[in-house]
């Protein structure tokens, strides 16, 4: 039934969006890397040679690792002079001087029959289920506050941050993480991955 499928898509897309937004910006606010959220890091998509398109403030496309490095440099411009080779361990020591505050987000299903990157077995498995093989367009609106930390407490100084604040408009195209969908009990894995990311903070 088409109506039921539509409703299921809407419901599941909202859940996926919530899950993604909560995880993604919590990572950013903790200074943790987010490159694992992009299709580039996923084996299924790697084997299909599918890569994410990331545009930051109108920059030419960059890789997820470069995005992590940019985030790091935004927090503390000194650090990139000694880049870490392992992006997963880069910036945990950096105090959170940049804070993302999300005011709103909304999501649409732009392709309810998404197939790219999936193996025939995976397609077969999820072929009839609505709300699973979705390509989503997620737009997030909020602000980026730039604060300073006093001492080594590492706490974000909101009072100082209010002086420098940018509006944030983040747009993602999300696609299913086939690996997470196929594995039973993989609750902690990202169920959707970023296929396109357009970031604007101004």
């Amino acid at each position: 039934m088409a109506v039921t499928d539509h409703e299921e898509n809407v419901r599941r897309s909202a859940e996926a969006a919530k899950e993604f937004v909560e995880w993604y910006y919590s990572q950013l606010n903790q200074g943790k890397p987010v490159c694992s959220a992009y299709v580039d890091k996923n084996k299924s998509y790697q084997s299909a040679s599918i890569k994410a398109d990331i545009t930051i403030n109108g920059s030419p496309p960059i890789t997820p690792e470069e995005w992590d490095a940019k985030l790091l440099s935004q927090r503390s411009p000194q650090t990139p002079s000694q880049p870490s080779t392992d992006p997963t361990t880069t910036n945990l020591m950096i105090s959170p001087k940049v804070h993302f505050e999300i005011d709103s987000y909304d999501v649409h299903v732009i392709n309810a029959d998404y197939r790219a990157g999936a193996t025939p077995a995976q397609l077969e498995k999820f072929g009839t289920k609505p709300g699973v093989r979705m390509m989503l367009m997620l737009s997030v609106s909020g602000s980026v506050a730039f604060g300073t930390t006093t001492g080594g407490s590492g706490d974000f100084d909101r009072a100082a941050a209010t002086t420098t604040k940018q509006h944030l408009n983040d747009t993602f195209i999300l696609v299913p993480n086939w690996d997470a969908l196929s594995r039973a009990g993989s609750r902690n894995t990202r169920r959707y991955l970023v296929f396109s990311h357009t970031y604007r903070a101004y």
Binding site: K70, Q74, S76, K97, F146, T148, A201, Y202
Partner: peptide, 16 residues
């Protein structure tokens, strides 16, 4: 050095 410790907003490019 202190300036370098301050967070700096990412550079802004024109429309892409």
């Amino acid at each position: 050095g202190l300036r370098a410790l301050e967070p700096t907003p990412l550079p802004q490019f024109p429309s892409n």
